[in-house]
Nucleic acid binder design. Structure first.
Lengths: 145, 145
DNA sequence: TATTGTTATACTCTATAACTATA
DNA sequence: TATAGTTATAGAGTATAACAATA
């Protein structure tokens, strides 16, 4: 087993700490719009571009497929999302309604506005952070293949 | 309002992506030990050193104080945590049992072992990441004061 | 036969409000 | 009066298992 560098351990701890801050923000933003976290998560996952099968949504929400039925029912009742038919007639694809797209934009803007702990870093730190996380993200995508 | 640099926005997006990976891991680790996420979160928050009031736990778990009662009941039933009396006799302080401390150690080791996307970064990137996140974390603490 | 989504069920989480015991 | 924790209640999330429709 490869030796894990001390910097990696400390970076992981710090990252966990900052994740808590982001999690708190996500809860707050969802609540502002009268959404529960899984409902907000669904709105986050759905794109204006293409439909998402129920099963894919379940995987991304990290829950059983049976739960997705109820969550989507509520979004559909609020007029934010809708079920559609796919080529394979067993599959139902989810899309956002116009209202859903609009709410998604608002939430994303609110949530992706960099938090203060990030904007207060120097320009150089911001740039370095973006580059390093970008490399990490690339490595992650190669794993998935 | 200060201009937000593009690097900050992209870093925030990348951070969100990596958070998903960590969230998935947390769910998995909790499940491995037969704990629900809030139960595992409580085990994470409690320390071997000092007791934590129920209200403080509720704040950290981001839920109403009334929920904490049931969550702690379950941990107590499993012999992982226990309620104790504080000086102010209205307050109940939570502490970990021996078994609770042991399980906490196992979970923390499993969770804080830096993920592959982090360990595969170069030594230089790991060090820079640790330093930058450390500065961000410091700025965060000053906010709280 | 296998897969997708749904339904049924039971348990957990969650917020709100009312209650108790302290302060 | 105010605060910490509990209880009661109702709604939402969750996993498991069984089911219908489709492949």
């Amino acid at each position: 087993m490869a030796k894990v560098h001390k910097d990696a351990v400390e970076a992981a701890e710090l990252l966990f700490e900052l994740m808590q801050v982001q999690k708190r923000l996500f809860h707050a933003v969802a609540k502002e719009h009268g959404l529960t976290p899984p409902q907000a998560g669904t709105l986050w996952i759905l794109t204006p571009d293409e439909g998402v099968p129920m099963s894919a949504l379940a995987e991304q929400l990290m829950c059983d497929a049976s739960n997705v039925t109820g969550i989507v029912d509520k979004l559909e009742a609020r007029g934010l999302a809708q079920r559609g038919q796919a080529e394979d007639r067993r599959v139902k694809v989810l899309t956002l309604t116009e209202a859903g797209v609009a709410l998604r934009v608002v939430m994303r803007e609110r949530f992706l506005t960099p938090p203060q702990w990030l904007t207060r870093l120097s320009r150089e730190d911001q740039r370095a952070l973006r580059e390093i996380l970008g490399r990490a993200s690339e490595a992650l995508k190669q794993d998935a293949e």
